[in-house]
Design a protein around this nucleic acid. Structure first.
Lengths: 304, 304
DNA sequence: GGCGACCATACCTGAAAAGCATCGCTATGC
DNA sequence: GCATAGCGATGCTTTTCAGGTATGGTCGCC
């Protein structure tokens, strides 16, 4: 890496470049920005130098974006927009009601809970916008740690990853086996673990859903038989798609059945292992007013 | 609005604040940033003034984040991260191969097409990352105009909104009626429009999917009967959920049936109206190498 | 060939960011 | 109770650099 004398990119550079990129004329852009044209030229040159990339092609009688420039124009606008949002967000918080709360959720586990909760929350606090983030368990824990989310609806995480967060149980789903509808096990009322150990499994990805793998390991520990995972997937739909085309069975909560449609059947395992616990994860130390209301809405939707 | 003497927020302010917010100690943060402590103090004060918000509570012996400060810390980090991404993106473009292409898609219309296309594209150009953006028709057209996306997989947009873009047809789906499985129409092989005019509909939202509403209007124009829309939704899953609980029928492409599962049946309309056309939308003027390859992959997946 | 549109260069000025020394506060230790 | 150490704020100077003015070069066009 070259040693960089250059100073850092600032929002000013991006504002200037965005304007030049739009009107494709330094003189006009300078007027629009209320600065002198040479000042603008220099800032753009500095930016190009700092990036090490030529953004504009100054042909005589016409200024054009280079290919890189076209890309950077989009990027620069996005950064500026993001920055405006940040400023607006903090001013809103300071002015009183926070208008947005960020909620992470596990889509497959909350298809029952989430719609009800959103509906009832909208009645309690119609002015608060809920921003939903569809994430893996792992991303949610990370995001909670960084303060990105105020609350997450997830399966109970493992104790050691909680780090001061609180988990409040809301719903439980029995563990089931998902099999193709035309398989003989689809007829059974329930399935014994021993009946499926011969079959490979399709599973959630280990890195993104560690608690899911802990559950599987626990489950198979007692049987003595080997846990064979044919494929790992990072979302319920693709897991279901894989099971449909016969890559393996699914072991997972009963609610997956609601996503799966007709071609898979979910049958409870016997003896029933501990059910999957779905609940709210939040930081009790910084529970703002809006988040507390959301939590109340979720509780009432779960009938607790 | 108050007149602001203050100067604008710059990335420097955010970098400084992010560091202070992390270590919660001006002196240490200043060392980390390689500036003198008073310089840092002043920048933070300027930032607070410009925002009109107190971000830090300077208790003696301990600096703490205010509530607004906690929010802004997350926001500031996000802006910085976004800015880094922008810089990295443009340098990557300049260095040769663009490593990312941005593709917008209509999730419900591309459940067949998209997985195949991604798979085949990965074989052609494994080094190119495809960033997928799940969007409404309206958002895609806007994003294409701004250059945010290189290509979109969508239903054919209305002519007047194309503005120099090209639409290439890839797949067609017949228009169907989605009814609850226990409804008598679910038994029918096909459904006449006259059979359902008594029933209300659940539909995609008008603002986000104008071409869908154009299609409905067209469809009902010939019948003389009134188009009754009970609810508008902004995504296929919530549309399907609404139909499941009996809010109304769905009129839409056959591929919705693959998302709906067992509790809804999709039956073709007779006489068959013009099918829904799914295809690729792109700007032929700036078709980079990577995007051209992606387009080829999509074509071959659609068997064209 | 003169003019006008357009951007670059050279140089100057002023604002503000950074540095340095110092102050004020308070918790802590003897 | 006094000295001390940790922390941030304040006042002042220095340095940096964004912005301004004047001007020059290039090219297309009348």
């Amino acid at each position: 890496m070259l040693f960089r004398y250059g100073r850092r990119v600032e929002l000013r550079h991006l504002r200037y470049f965005a304007t030049v990129g739009e009107v494709l004329n330094f003189t006009k852009a300078a007027q629009k920005l209320r600065v002198a044209q040479p000042a603008l030229s220099r800032q753009i040159r500095d930016l190009e130098e700092e990036l090490g990339v030529q953004l504009l092609e100054r042909g005589v009688r016409a200024t054009k974006l280079s290919e890189a420039g076209a890309v950077f124009l989009v990027e620069a606008r996005a950064v500026l927009e993001r920055a405006d949002k940040a400023v607006k967000a903090v001013r809103d918080v300071a002015l009183g009601e926070r208008v947005e709360i960020h909620v992470g959720y596990a889509p497959s586990l909350t298809i029952e809970l989430l719609p009800c909760a959103l509906h009832s929350f909208h009645n309690i606090a119609p002015s608060v916008h809920v921003k939903l983030h569809d994430l893996s368990s792992e991303e949610m824990l990370r995001g909670m740690g960084e303060g990105k989310f105020s609350l997450c609806l997830v399966a109970r995480p493992e104790k050691e990853s909680m780090r001061g967060l609180k988990f409040e149980l809301l719903q439980e789903y029995p563990i089931c086996v998902g099999v193709p509808s035309d398989h003989r096990l689809a007829q059974a009322k329930s399935v014994k673990l021993a009946q499926i150990t011969a079959e490979p499994l399709v599973a959630y990805s280990r890195t993104e859903y560690p608690e899911y793998h802990a559950m599987l390991k626990e489950l198979f520990a007692s049987t003595g038989s080997e846990l064979r995972i044919a494929e790992e997937h990072d979302s319920a739909p693709s897991l279901i798609a894989a099971a449909r085309i016969g890559r393996g069975f699914i072991i997972g909560p009963a609610c997956l059945g609601m996503l799966a449609g007709a071609r898979l059947k979910f049958r409870p395992l016997t003896p029933a292992p501990p059910p999957v616990q779905v609940g709210a994860l939040f930081d009790p130390a910084r529970l703002s007013d809006g988040v507390a209301k959301f939590l109340a809405a979720v509780r009432s939707s779960a009938g607790k």
